[in-house]
Design a protein around this nucleic acid. Structure first.
Length: 588
RNA sequence: UGGGGAGUCGCCAAGUUGGUUAAGGCACUGGGUUUUGAUCCCAGCAUCCGAAGGUUCGAGUCCUUCCUCCUCAGCCA
């Protein structure tokens, strides 16, 4: 009997495969959880962990979250959700000079917006690395006591030189063999503020000849007099990421510590450190394991924190929430949705391959989600007047437009038809190009939800610009009335009554960079900025749009998706941002 | 030139211990529906898995050699 191949579950990736195997083998069955993070003794008092796995999303609060973080958030929180686990939101705040409360707030806000939480009625899994400073300090002393760390008096420059290179081994520091007692005294003096910033440093004692540079006695604790957003002035020494991160994971009983590829060669130190601390009895077993996946690269976008900070600080954009920025705050203001990001992260998958995702994939995801959710409205973005010459000047007639063609239950709304209308300038061509089937002299076209009209001509100004288009309507062709289909037309254009229009500011956004790979080679990425990434226009919208609230999203028919801006809208006078255009086979 | 990774259709990406026709999505190309040139529907789309050898009845999956790309020398994370 041939064994049948089991189809791969959707969303399968190498991390899920690892989790599946770990769960199957009961690797984490013996884990205990004492209700809060802590050392071995603390968790020994706890119960078997009800969370099957624990993951964490560990941002440093030194900037706003961007689209790349969304991938990590959906991965970590998604894994926890799918495997009956828990995901901790943990701020990795070990460098006081770059971190601040503003960033903490924006990050929690964004994670919530994406649909994730970290608390239930019993526990709140919101943590700060800085709350573990006491433990980290004692872990460092433990390392010293066991001969696994020493205080170095070399300068940063000397350390750089003695570290060796990629192909040459390093040299031992002359201070490498200080006694335990001396190291302990010095380290305590570092803590007590006896020594100047940068004068002494605590290093792990591993192997200066290691082929892995990260194992050549890495720095783990530095002296730095800086005010910390959480611990204030309590400390003048701060742990390095390399030292702090594994400990944070272990204290929180993280099972799968997922990070990006550039931390791959840090893993041996991660394992080394935790093993030393566990053998000293400080950390509970089993220890967390680190896994790496490839970070997101998106074409036409920069996703490095450094570059994003630069764009904001140099005022190339209006702020962290500029709708053109790939920050999640900016994307949100642009009208991108959490559901769209979910679709996107599902679609791109998780692997270890260095890849560049085409930006259009993200846009398509937003279109797909918005097509389903957004109500339809009418907007004339580049207005030109259309006069129906055989229509009474004082007449106002109700036309009915469905709010959502896929959801009749959402009903219809009234749009008033009058003699003078605004139509899209590009919907009329005096001399049509091949394949154009909208308004042309003598041609027939349907006014969407209204009548079929026949174009009778146009007026132009001295420079040849069309100022008014004229037409006559065919009385028996009104949409929704019997026999309205008797006249078949291919073209179908939208319109807004001049008397009933809401004149409104609309921002049309385009990509921020004109190159697929900004800053590729030795180009400065700023040279690749698209100088026309935003166009502000005055549009004529259907009147009801005046009542839109901040963050309300709509499809402006035949144009795209738009959202009422959350910052610049005022009551009864919203302004709109274009989220993304509709696909347009004609333009191609 | 040292260490650590990665190479499956234009872009992503499945492919558990080798098993017989290489998932799926996006894009693309045809065709259909449509009062959004949108949506939707249907069909097509890798004799081939970076390259070359080898083992085997059988290889994307094992072995050998080679090639390309990413990454590491902060008291950043």
């Amino acid at each position: 009997m041939a064994s049948e191949k089991i189809p791969t579950p959707l969303g399968s990736n190498f991390i899920r495969t690892i989790v599946d195997k770990d769960l199957e083998q009961g690797v984490y069955q013996s884990r205990k959880w004492a209700g809060s993070p802590g050392d071995a003794a603390h968790h020994a008092t706890g119960q078997p962990d009800v969370a099957k796995i624990r993951t964490r999303f560990p941002p440093e609060p030194n900037g706003y979250l961007h689209i790349g973080h969304a991938k990590s958030i959906f991965l970590n929180f998604g894994l926890a959700r799918d495997y009956a686990g828990v995901c901790h939101l943990r701020f990795d705040d070990t460098n006081p000079e770059k971190e601040s409360q503003e960033y903490v707030d924006s990050i929690t806000d964004t994670v919530k917006w994406l649909g994730f939480g970290w608390e239930n009625k019993h526990e709140r899994h919101l943590y700060f690395a800085s709350n573990y400073f006491d433990f980290m300090y004692s872990a460092a002393e433990s390392l010293i006591e066991h001969g696994h760390a020493y205080v170095d008096s070399q300068t940063a420059e000397e350390m750089r030189i003695t570290r060796g290179t990629l192909t040459e081994v390093g040299k031992n520091s002359p201070w490498r063999d200080r006694t335990v007692a001396e190291n302990l005294t010095l380290f305590r003096e570092m803590r007590d503020g006896i020594h100047a910033d940068g004068s002494l440093i605590l290093r792990a004692k591993i192997d200066m000849a290691s082929a892995n540079i990260n194992l050549r006695d890495p720095a783990i604790y530095r002296v730095r007099r800086a005010h910390h957003h959480n611990t204030g002035d309590k400390w003048c020494i701060y742990p390095m990421y390399t030292f702090a991160h594994p400990i944070e994971d272990a204290l929180e009983q993280i099972t799968h510590s997922i990070c990006t590829l550039e931390f791959e060669d840090q893993r041996p130190f991660y394992d080394w450190l935790l093993a030393r601390l566990a053998e000293a009895g400080l950390l509970a077993q089993p220890l967390p394991k680190q896994y790496e996946f490839s970070r997101l690269n998106l074409t036409y976008v920069v996703l490095s924190k450094r570059k994003l900070i630069q764009l904001v600080e140099e005022k190339q954009v209006s702020g962290w929430d500029d709708p053109r920025l790939p920050s999640l705050a900016g994307a949100r203001r642009r009208g991108y949705t959490a559901a769209g990001f979910k679709l996107f992260t599902d679609r791109i998958g998780v692997s270890k391959v260095d890849s560049w995702i085409e930006y259009t994939i993200l846009e398509d995801c937003m279109r797909e989600v918005l097509n389903e959710s957004a109500e339809r409205r009418i907007a004339v973005l580049d207005p030109v007047k259309l006069v129906i010459d055989n229509y009474p000047a004082d007449q106002v007639e109700d036309c009915f437009a469905p709010n959502h063609p896929l959801k009749p239950e959402l009903g219809k709304r009234v749009v008033p038809l009058t003699r003078e209308l605004w139509i899209e300038r590009e919907d009329f061509m005096e001399e049509p190009s091949k394949g154009f089937f909208r308004l042309v002299p003598d041609g027939l076209v349907r006014l969407r939800y209204g009548y079929v009209v026949q174009c009778t001509g146009c007026e132009k100004d001295a420079t040849g610009n069309v100022t008014v288009v004229h037409c006559e309507y065919l009385p028996d062709t009104k949409s929704g009335t019997p026999g309205s289909d008797s006249v078949k037309v291919k073209g179908n254009i939208h319109w807004v009554s001049v008397q009933h229009a809401y004149e409104c500011e609309v921002r049309l956004y385009d990509r921020l960079f004109k190159e697929a790979h900004p800053g590729e080679g030795d180009r400065d990425f700023l040279n690749d900025l698209n100088l026309n990434s935003v166009t502000v226009i005055t549009a004529q919208l259907e009147l009801g749009l005046r009542n839109a609230h901040a963050e309300d999203g709509f499809q402006f028919e035949r144009h795209g998706y738009f959202v009422a801006d959350s910052k610049d809208s005022v009551a009864a006078k919203p302004v709109f941002n274009r989220t993304v255009t509709l696909r347009d086979a004609w333009q191609k």
